[in-house]
Design a protein around this nucleic acid. Structure first.
Length: 828
DNA sequence: AGCACGCCGACT
DNA sequence: GTCGGCGTGCTC
C-alpha cells in the first residue's frame, strides 16, 4: 500500500503529496487524515496522509517507508483534507499551511534529533570517557548532549560522520499531557482497616486521611483529598510508605469549566417572529442539503434562543453543530447559555485556553463525546463527522478573517464545509456585512428556482421593548459654547443621573485614531520607528516607545530630540485619559477599564465583566470589546465618546464599521425592564453612518452605502485580492512588482477577462498598481502593493498563482516576498 | 524549510 | 594541498 503524504514544509516546491510505502504494521491503522512521521531529505518530518493508493507514479523501488504513525485516531478526516486543498487554492497558501490551521497547537509536532552509540569500541577511542559513560546505550537528545559537552561539538560531529554515533529523528508533539498525583487504596482493604487501628495516636492526621479514603472507597486526586479531609501531603506520603495508600500519576483531561455548575435552562417559548425563522432553519437542517441563510435580527431580538433551539433540533437528528462567535464576544455569558442548555455536550474553544486545555476540548469533539462546538474562527474546523448546522453569530465581524496565512474567512470556509456535509449555515447579525446582505437579497436566478430566499428577518425585539432613543451630540457646537471637556453636557448630566439612581453606564472609546503617540508641541516632531514607516507607540507602564510592527523599543526622551524643547507630550492610552477625566468630574466614581492593558492576563476579561455584572462598578469603559454581546440588566446609558475616529480612516469599509459599532453598542442599553438611552458624540453628525445608526435604520444605511460602493467600484460590486510585495532594496522591489503586475495583466488578457470594471456587466478584472503600501516600510523592508478587482465567475486566485510562478525561483538574497490576501478586510 | 553537493579563497 | 564560504537544487 502507498500513502500520499503532505509534508510539513511550507514552500512552493514541496507543496504536493509525496509517496511512501505503508509498513505492514501500520496498514490497518493508517487512514486519510492520519498524522505520520516520514523521512524527508535526511530527517523525519510530520505529515498528513491525503490519499491511500495501490500504486505509485514514483519509482516504487525508491519509495521510503513511513517511519511513525503519530496517533491511533487520525486527527483529521477526509473532508478536512479536501477542505484544506480548497483553501490552499482559494487563499494562495500551501496545503500544509491550511492543514496546520485545522489542528490544535499541541499536535504541531516538531522533529527531534536523537543520537546513540553505534560502535562502542571506536567511541571509547574518539570520545571522552565522561560522555560515553553518560550516554550508555541510550538514545540521547542531540541538543542536550551538545549542551552538556559543548567543547566536544567537533568530535560529536565527526563521530556522526564516521558512524561511531548514529542519529535518529522522531516527531515529538508539543504536548504536555497533564498528570496529577492521585491517591489509591491498596487492593487489600481489609488489611488497611486493621492497620488503621494500629496507627499511633499522635499520627492523628494520618488516621483522618485514611479513614476518609476508606469511607470514600474510590481513588481521589491528592490536592482534592487534602482540601476535603485536611492533612498535608507529608501525611499521605508517609501512609504511602507504609503501604496503606498508593500514589500514582494519572493522566488528566483538563476541563476549563470543571467544577462549575451551569444552571440548566429550558427552551423558552418563541415569539411569532422567532418561530418563523426557527421553522425555516430546521427545515433546512432536516433537508440535509447545503443552504446558507442570513438571519438579520435587531439587537435584542432573541437570536441566541433561536440558535439554541435550532441546535437542539439538529442534535435530535443525530447531527452535530458548530457555533462561531467573535473572540471578543465569547464571554462567560455566552458560554453559560450554551452550557446551560446542552451541558456536557458542548466543547468550548477560545484563544484564552492553554495549549493543553484547547487540545482536551478538541479531543472531546474528535472522540464524539460532544455534539456542539462553540468557538472563535478556527472552530470551523471542529472534526465532527456529520455536521447538520453551522451558526456564525455577528457574521459581519472582521475577526472571522485570519490575518496570517492561511488568510481565510471563516464565513466562506463554513459555506464550503457545509456543502461537504449537506449542512445549513446561519449567518446572524443585527448589522450584516454588505457582502452577505447583497448575496442574500440577490434576485433568484433560474438555478435557485423553487428555493426559498435566504434572508430571514427578525425586526422586532423580544417583549416588544423599543430600541433605545439615540441622541447625537455635535461636539463642534459644544466647543463653540465653551465646553472643552471630552464629555458633552448631555453625557455629563446623564452620567450624573445614573450615579444618583444607582444604574450603570457603558462608555465606548472608539480607539482607532485615539492611540498613543508622542508629539513635540514646539516643532511638531513625532517619534517614528527607524525600521518601519510608522510612528512609535507610547507605553505608560514601561515609559518606553515601541513599534507595533517590528518590536523596536527605545527610552522615551525627556526633551524633543529634534529641537530640544521640553514641550514634548506623551499621550497615554485613550481609555486612561477618559478614566482620569471621569474621576476628576465624579469623585468616587467606580470605573472598570477594559482595554488591551487590563485584559492581557488570563481570565481578566471574565473577571472584569463579572465585577461589572455584580454591580461593583458604575461605569464600564472600554474599546470595541465593550460593544459586543454584553447583556447587563442595569445598564441604562451607553455613551460613545467619539464616533468619528473610525470614520476618518481612508478604508472603503470605514462607514460600514462605524455604523456597525454604533448600532451594536446602542443595543447594549435597556435590554431588560429599565429603559435605556444612548448618547453619541461626534464631529460629523450629518454623516449618513451616524444618522442612520441614530435612527436604527439598517436599510437606509445599506442603500446609501451601496451607492458609494457602486460608484467607487468596491465590494459587493466586485471582489478584491491584495498582493503585497516586500524587499530591502527599493529599486529591485520596484522592478519585480512591475514585472508581476504586467505578468498578471498578460495572463488575464489571454483569458479574455482584462476588462475595465466600469464597462457594464459580465466578467471583468483589473490590476491596480503597483504603488507603495500605506505602511511603506516594515522591518527595513520596503513594501509595494497591487490591488486586483474582479467580478463575475473568474478564478482570480488561480490567475494570481500562475502570475507568481516566474518570481518564485532565483537567487535567495534577491527574493522578493509576496503576500497574497484574498478578500482583504482592509486595503486603506 | 533544511541539507547536501559543488566550485573558489585563506590557512596548516 | 585542505577547510570552509554559501550558491543551487532536491526531498517520495
Amino acid at each position: 500500500m502507498i500513502a500520499k503524504v503532505i509534508v510539513d514544509v511550507p514552500s512552493r516546491q514541496t507543496d504536493r503529496p509525496f509517496d511512501y510505502e505503508v509498513p505492514a504494521a501500520f496498514a490497518d491503522w493508517i487512514e486519510v487524515g492520519s498524522r505520520v512521521g516520514v523521512p524527508f531529505g535526511g530527517r523525519v518530518l510530520q505529515g498528513f496522509v491525503t490519499e491511500l493508493a495501490d500504486t505509485s507514479d514514483f519509482d516504487s523501488k525508491r519509495l521510503k517507508p513511513i517511519a511513525e504513525l503519530l496517533d491511533h485516531v487520525p486527527p483529521l478526516l477526509p473532508d478536512l483534507i479536501e477542505l484544506a486543498k480548497w483553501m490552499s487554492e482559494k487563499y494562495c497558501c500551501s496545503w500544509t499551511t491550511a492543514l496546520q490551521a485545522m489542528i490544535p497547537g499541541a499536535l504541531k509536532g516538531k522533529a527531534e534529533r536523537l543520537v546513540c552509540i553505534q560502535d562502542a569500541e571506536s567511541a571509547s577511542e574518539d570520545l571522552p570517557l565522561a560522555m560515553t559513560e553518560w550516554m550508555g546505550s541510550q538514545l540521547v537528545k542531540l541538543d542536550v548532549l551538545l549542551e552538556r559537552f559543548p567543547e566536544y561539538a567537533k568530535s560529536v560531529k565527526s563521530a556522526l560522520r564516521e558512524g561511531v554515533l548514529v542519529e535518529h529523528t522522531k516527531v515529538r508533539d508539543r504536548l504536555a499531557i497533564r498528570k496529577v498525583l492521585t491517591v489509591y487504596l491498596p487492593d487489600d482493604v481489609g488489611k488497611v482497616r486493621t492497620q488503621l487501628a494500629a496507627l499511633p495516636a499522635r499520627a492523628g492526621k494520618q488516621r483522618e486521611v485514611l479513614a476518609f479514603m476508606l469511607e470514600r472507597g474510590e481513588p481521589m486526586v491528592l490536592q482534592q483529598l487534602l482540601a476535603e479531609a485536611g492533612g498535608s501531603a507529608a501525611s499521605v506520603r508517609s501512609l504511602a510508605e507504609k503501604g496503606l495508600l498508593e500514589l500514582r500519576e494519572v493522566e488528566q483531561q483538563r476541563d476549563p469549566y470543571a467544577g462549575r455548575e451551569f444552571d440548566r435552562t429550558m427552551p423558552l417559548a418563541l415569539t411569532e417572529g422567532q418561530n418563523e425563522v426557527y421553522d425555516r432553519i430546521i427545515r433546512a437542517v432536516d433537508a440535509g442539503e447545503p443552504k446558507t441563510m442570513l438571519l438579520h435580527g435587531v439587537t435584542g431580538s432573541g437570536k441566541t434562543e433561536v440558535y439554541l433551539q435550532s441546535i437542539q433540533f439538529c442534535l435530535e437528528q443525530e447531527k452535530q453543530a458548530i457555533v462561531l462567535v467573535p473572540e471578543i464576544s465569547l464571554t462567560p455569558q455566552m458560554v453559560e447559555r450554551f452550557k446551560g442548555r446542552f451541558g456536557d455536550a458542548v466543547a468550548v474553544l477560545h484563544s484564552r485556553l492553554s495549549n493543553g486545555e484547547r487540545y482536551d476540548e478538541w479531543r472531546k469533539i474528535r472522540s464524539r463525546q460532544v455534539q456542539v462546538a462553540i468557538g472563535a474562527r478556527s472552530a470551523i474546523f471542529a472534526p465532527f463527522e456529520r455536521i447538520g448546522l453551522i451558526i456564525i453569530d455577528e457574521e459581519h465581524e472582521s475577526s472571522y478573517k485570519q490575518e496570517e496565512s492561511p488568510k481565510y474567512h471563516a464565513r466562506d470556509v463554513a459555506v464550503r464545509r457545509a456543502r461537504q456535509h449537506g449542512a445549513a449555515v446561519v449567518l446572524g447579525s443585527a448589522t450584516p456585512s454588505l457582502e452577505s446582505f447583497a448575496a442574500a437579497s440577490r434576485p433568484l436566478t433560474a438555478k435557485d428556482e423553487g428555493r426559498e430566499p435566504a434572508l430571514l428577518p427578525m425586526p422586532v425585539r423580544v417583549g416588544g421593548r423599543p430600541l433605545p432613543p439615540v441622541t447625537v451630540i455635535d461636539m463642534r457646537e459644544e466647543l463653540k459654547e465653551g465646553n472643552r471637556s471630552m464629555f458633552s453636557r448631555l453625557l455629563h448630566s446623564s452620567l450624573a443621573d445614573r450615579l444618583e439612581r444607582g444604574e450603570q453606564s457603558v462608555l465606548l472609546l472608539n480607539r482607532r485614531g485615539y492611540s498613543t503617540f508622542v508629539m513635540c508641541r514646539s516643532c511638531g516632531y513625532t517619534a517614528a520607528c527607524p525600521h518601519c514607516d510608522i510612528s512609535l507607540t507610547y507605553h505608560q507602564k514601561s515609559r518606553a516607545l515601541r513599534c507595533h510592527y517590528c518590536g523596536h523599543a527605545e527610552q522615551a526622551p525627556a526633551t524633543c530630540p529634534s529641537c530640544q524643547s521640553e514641550h514634548i507630550r506623551y499621550f497615554g492610552t485613550g481609555t486612561q485619559r477618559v478614566e482620569e477625566e471621569l474621576s476628576k468630574l465624579f469623585p468616587g466614581i467606580r470605573v472598570i477599564r477594559m482595554d488591551v492593558d487590563t485584559t492581557t492576563e488570563k481570565n481578566s476579561h471574565e473577571k472584569l465583566l463579572k465585577q461589572f455584572g455584580d454591580r461593583k462598578a458604575d461605569v464600564l469603559l472600554g474599546t470595541q470589546m465593550v460593544a459586543k454581546g454584553l447583556d447587563f440588566p442595569y445598564v441604562t446609558l451607553v455613551g460613545v465618546i467619539a464616533a468619528d475616529t473610525s470614520l476618518n480612516l481612508p478604508d472603503f469599509r470605514a462607514a460600514e464599521r462605524t455604523f456597525q459599532l454604533l448600532t451594536q453598542v446602542a443595543g447594549r442599553a435597556g435590554r431588560h425592564h429599565l429603559p435605556g438611552e444612548v448618547v453619541i458624540q461626534t464631529y460629523v453628525p450629518e454623516h449618513y453612518a451616524v444618522v442612520t445608526a441614530q435612527q436604527h435604520d439598517y436599510a437606509a444605511f445599506v442603500s446609501e452605502e451601496l451607492r458609494h460602493r457602486s460608484a467607487m467600484g468596491y465590494p459587493p460590486y466586485c471582489r478584491l485580492i491584495l498582493v503585497t510585495m516586500s524587499h530591502e532594496q527599493l529599486p529591485l522591489l520596484s522592478t519585480v512588482s512591475e514585472g508581476f503586475a504586467s505578468e498578471l495583466r498578460e495572463i488575464a488578457e489571454n483569458e479574455g477577462v482584462l476588462i475595465s470594471l466600469s464597462s457594464g456587466f459580465g466578467r471583468a478584472l483589473e490590476v491596480l498598481g503597483p504603488v507603495a503600501s500605506p505602511i511603506s516600510r516594515i522591518k527595513d523592508r520596503y513594501r509595494f502593493q497591487c490591488v486586483i478587482k474582479y467580478r463575475g465567475s473568474i478564478d482570480a486566485s488561480a490567475l494570481v498563482r500562475k502570475a507568481l510562478l516566474p518570481f518564485t525561483g532565483g537567487p535567495p538574497q534577491r527574493l522578493v516576498q509576496f503576500s497574497i490576501d484574498v478578500d482583504p478586510q482592509v486595503i486603506l
